[in-house]
Design a protein around this nucleic acid. Structure first.
Lengths: 209, 209
DNA sequence: ACAGACTATCTATGGATATAGTTATTGGCA
DNA sequence: TGCCAATAACTATATCCATAGATAGTCTGT
């Protein structure tokens, strides 16, 4: 007889926030608000979640034994809950990291719209492409800044992470972070180039001869 | 006093299937099953949805006046429901096409994992990169095939679409489709190149000296 | 002393999505 | 004739995710 208790099994497929939270908590213990702030800023453009998802998920993860919550005083009367990853949490994260992702089907509104762009007014079509460029330019800047931080040793999270592991592993940790952001930068550049070609195409198609 | 009836307003943000269905139904009337099949195959890698979402959404769209369902006999005893887009449906689609997309936050499991790849065994890390390559190679082939179909005039959906519009608009329709798939191909090539660099990086970092 | 911004957490609701079924008919093929 | 894959449609469940609020304490500057 198999007995499974509280097995909220997240399939490799759905990352569902859980592993993103575990990833951040491998670096250091944090409160829900800390995690929320990370998702709002830096990390937020690889993974994002609102606080209303984070707090309940943290409680669920605690009851699944992946985290340990601890009340910490905050000012004279306030308090906050700091979550620390447990050994089981580390193992769960490691197991996920050792499992291949299941790639889910694409769901790509920008390209869906692009395929039907003849339905839009020329100005609206241009505006979409411009919005695409603006969006990815912002990402590009953020990610370029990330690379700069990595190279300058100016990333607080990365430095904390490095201080917790032996020196001979620093290289790998830094290299994979850099590799990730390089990929995101290249992708952003591609998206910008694509949308710029889109703008040219629109001009060409709607040129009054 | 404002009275709003059945205003299931999908924000520009959430595409939510509805506009993907409208897009396909601008070409010709189809049954839920037809639409499902399209999402399973060709179109499925720009937008995907299981039938269990499609059927209820079609009914909702009908009650919102965007579609008109019509019972069609199917064999001696069977029947099926064919949905045709209404004028209101066309207007809704056009309005959506003339509105800028709101770009939602990234949620990118592959890059999230890549950023923490030092947690994976070297073989698992390699396997992830290989899976990334395999995934995008499959997309690449599909999309390349799409381009070929477009160029050869061998795309049934595109031909149906073209036969419903005046000749002077054919160029635009074809050009935007081609542009879309070109973008997807370039993206797939970028992802493959990235993952190949990942493989190199892993070899380099875990080389026994 | 108080305003206002920020920290910290929680609830509720609705819509999106995935998974796993059930039911029934059709049409081709052995 | 009988089997089976494909067609056609529906239901149920659970989670995911976004939006919008509610509540309450802290910290800083005026």
């Amino acid at each position: 007889m198999d007995i499974v208790i509280g097995n909220t099994e997240c399939k490799g497929n759905t990352v569902s926030l859980r592993y993103a939270l575990l990833a951040l908590l491998t670096v250091e213990p944090m409160t829900g608000y800390d995690l929320f702030k990370h998702f709002e800023s830096s990390v937020g453009y690889v993974w994002h979640a609102p606080d209303s998802q984070i707090y309940p998920e943290l409680r669920r993860m605690e009851s699944d034994g992946l985290l340990e919550g601890r009340e910490v005083p905050w000012g004279p009367r306030g308090k906050k809950t700091e979550y620390r990853i447990t050994d089981e949490g580390v193992e769960t994260f490691r197991a996920w990291m050792n499992t291949d992702l299941e790639y889910s089907r694409e769901r790509d509104p920008a390209h869906l719209k692009a395929a039907y762009l003849e339905w839009a007014e020329p100005e609206a079509a241009r505006s979409q492409m411009q919005a695409h460029i603006t969006h990815y330019r912002a990402r590009l800047e953020q990610w370029t800044e990330k690379i700069r931080e990595i190279d300058d040793g100016a990333s607080p999270m990365l430095n904390k992470r490095l201080s917790g592991i032996p020196a001979e592993e620093h290289q790998k940790t830094v290299a994979f972070k850099r590799f990730t952001y390089e990929g995101l930068i290249a992708r952003a550049e591609h998206e910008i180039a694509w949308a710029e070609r889109g703008l040219d195409l629109i001009s060409e198609l709607y040129r009054t001869p």
